[in-house]
Every structure is written in C-alpha cells, then in structure tokens.
Design a protein around this nucleic acid. Structure first.
Lengths: 210, 210
DNA sequence: GGTAATCTGGACCCTCAAGTCCAGAAACCG
DNA sequence: CGGTTTCTGGACTTGAGGGTCCAGATTACC
C-alpha cells in the first residue's frame, strides 16, 4: 500500500491522521480544511500531499479507517466476550456511555456522507466494520444459545443484525435529538427479546428469571 | 414566515425546492451547487436569493422540511392506522419497499450532516419528524394493547422508541452496505417482540396465532 | 391606465480552500 | 563521506461556488 516509509515519516503520517481525526471530531468534517489540519499538526501543505498523494479524499479515508477501528475497540473487552447476561449488560452500558460522551457528533457518519458511500474505499471501511460488529454480536447470541439461555431456533445472524440496527438507529437519534433514550430503549428491547425467547422449559424450571 | 407571495412567486419557490430536492436525491447534497439548482429549475441566481434571502442554508432547510414530510407521507395510510397485526405488517412492507427503492441515498441524513445538527432550524425539523413518527408508533402499540393483543404493562413510548431506532439503523445500514436485511430484521424483531409480549391468555384461547 | 409592488435575468465580485511547485534540509546507504 | 532518497517549508496558482447588484419585465391593486 505505502512503500518505503522511514520511522520518522510513519510518525508524521500518523500524526496527521490523528490530528485530522481530532479536528473532525471537534468541528465536523464539513468545516475542516486541510489548512486546519496543517496548523494543528504542525505540518506543511507539501507534507499533506506527500503522505496522501490523492489529496483530501485519501486523508479522509484514512481517518475513516481510524475512526472505524475506534468504534470497535471502544466496546472492548465486553463486545468480544458476550458469554453471559452480565456480559451483555456490561456491553450495553459501555455502548450507552461511549455514545453519550461522544454526544452529537458522529465522525464516521459524517465522513461517510462526505466521501459518498459508493466510493469503493468508503464501502470497504463500512462493510468491514459492520461485518465485524455483527459477527461479534452473533457470536454472543450463540454463546447464550449454547448455554441454553436463548432459544436455539433463533437465527443468530439475523438477531445480531437487528440489534446492530437498533444501536445504529439509537446513535443516530442521539445525534439528532440529543436524547439517549432511544439508544437505551433499543438495547434493552434487543436484550429483552433474547431473554424472552428462552425456550419453554422442557424439563422443569418454571421460573421466569435465572 | 414569508410575507406577500403572489401565486406565481409561490409556484416558483416550490419549483425551486422540489428541483433542489430532486437534485440532492440524485447527486447528494455535497456535490449539489446553487448553479445546479438554477439550471435544473430554469431560474436565475437572483431568484434563488429572492426566495431564500439567507442563501443556500435557507434553501437546504426548506428542502429538509420537504423531505421530512415525505418520509411520513410515504408511510401512509398504514402508519396512521396501526390497529391490527395486519396493519403492522402492511406498514412494515411499505417501509421496506420505500427504502429499498430509495437505495443508498438518504437525502435527509445527508442534509442534516451538512446543516449541522445544532442549528436550531435543523433541530426543529428532525425533532418534529421523530416526535410525530414515534407518536404514531406508540399509538399503534396502544391500539394493540387495547385489543388485548399486547402486554398492557409494556411502555408504549419506549417500545415505539426502540422500533423507531431499529428502523433508523436499518435504513442507515441499507445505505452503507446496500443490503436491506438489517432493516427487515429490525422490523420483524420489533413486531415479534410485541407479539411475544402478549399476556398469557387468562381466558381460554390457547392458540399462539390469531 | 398608472404606479407600486413583486418577480426575473445575468453579469460581476470575492473568498476560500484544494492542489502545484521547487528549493532546501534531513536521513539513509554504500 | 558522497550520492540518493525521503522529508519539509512555504509561496503560488486555480477554480469553484456562494453571494451581490441593478436594470428590466411582469403582475397586483386602485
């Protein structure tokens, strides 16, 4: 992808990406100019184009990749180990907290709007993120199924897909309205749905709750 | 809001809004210029500023209002009469079809990203849309509750909120990935969740399905 | 019909930000 | 070291697009 980059060069490149990401997180992608990035990162125009020959587009794509990575890592370690109801709840809380803090800005969404979703590069970034996210959730569903906590007849991928949609929509509504209630409602409903799916106890155990 | 507008003027103004909306739907807000709108609507620069003195911002806001209205009317008549499971299913199908057709562009989302969500005007548009949408869904939930089809203990607003989040996220994922499965999964899960909440039949009627 | 408003055409301006260029400093490599 | 590549600084070009202006056409209203 990038050829021959001395340590110094790599550091500068990274500094540019992180500076641009911060700038965009604070002021939005629409108002962020290369000059803003230049000033913030203490670089010059030529450096920007040295490391991102395609110009702004390429830089934004790199920032998008960076932000997509953040989205997932910010949910760890919970997202990677959804093996119990408690783990699911911890994950839920982490997500709510993460986005409550982020508030009304969603850098990734903004970036995508800007880049145009049809660009192959943008496409790849978002597809990768969605696929990985959904896979983790599906794995979590399967864990619960294996533990007999969830109806084994449930389609794990489809359920994960629906939970993911709820999270996405909740975040979008948080951005738009400033209220976190949609996100909470979506997460709670999703988990509740899992819980209630528990198969009618074939062998004793009439209790509703574990 | 707008004072003294002759019929002719009103027509021109509307033509501008609709032309701009179409342009944005086709090419995205980021790439749409006033000149594009001008050409498409057969108007001149001075007309644009005559009808939208604040310039592009004001025009985009008008377009956003227009699109927000479309979002709701496109779901009618079903959204307004969610009084039975069949009505809910019809609504579900309408939504899926509507967004499948719309494909990867979401004018409203793009508009919002562009306008900045903090602008009071943009704020009002999206809040109005969300509130009305959620209210209709909540009304639908209450209908089912009144008919004894849904657990009366369920918080109708919160449930509506969660369904709405699912739709929003499903649409966003449709835009990003091009696949409609998330939206379908979210809607189906939401409705399924309502169905399963049905109180254990106190008086006979052991069947699972109506 | 007159006059006062609204409406329209299009040339012009002006800012801002992306992108280019080249020269010079620093780092790598034999 | 000497040559070559990578890296950096900053002035310059370019063009797009939002916004202004004013003169002239059209319409409303008495």
């Amino acid at each position: 992808m990038t050829r021959a980059l001395t340590p110094k060069g790599a550091a500068t490149r990274l500094r540019i990406i992180e500076g641009a990401a911060a700038e965009i997180r604070e002021n939005g992608v629409a108002t962020t100019t290369l000059d803003d990035v230049r000033v913030r990162t203490g670089t010059s125009k030529s450096q920007l184009f040295h490391y991102f020959p395609e110009g702004k587009e390429e830089l934004l794509l790199a920032v998008a990749r960076h932000e997509a990575e953040r989205v997932l890592t910010d949910q760890q370690p919970h997202l990677g180990a959804l093996t119990s109801w408690d783990a699911w709840r911890a994950w839920r809380d982490t997500v709510v907290e993460r986005y409550r803090r982020q508030g009304r800005h969603c850098p990734l969404n903004a970036l995508m709007s800007q880049l145009g979703r049809s660009t192959p590069g943008a496409q790849a970034v978002v597809n990768g993120l969605v696929d990985r996210w959904q896979a983790e959730l599906a794995a979590g569903v399967r864990h619960l199924q294996a533990a007999g906590e969830v109806d084994p007849g449930l389609d794990a991928e489809r359920t994960a897909s629906s939970i993911l949609a709820g999270v996405q929509g909740g975040v979008m509504l948080l951005m738009s309205t400033g209220r976190v209630t949609h996100l909470e409602a979506a997460l709670d409903t999703g988990i509740e749905h899992l819980r209630r799916s528990r198969p009618a106890p074939v062998s004793g155990d009439g209790a509703v709750r574990g």
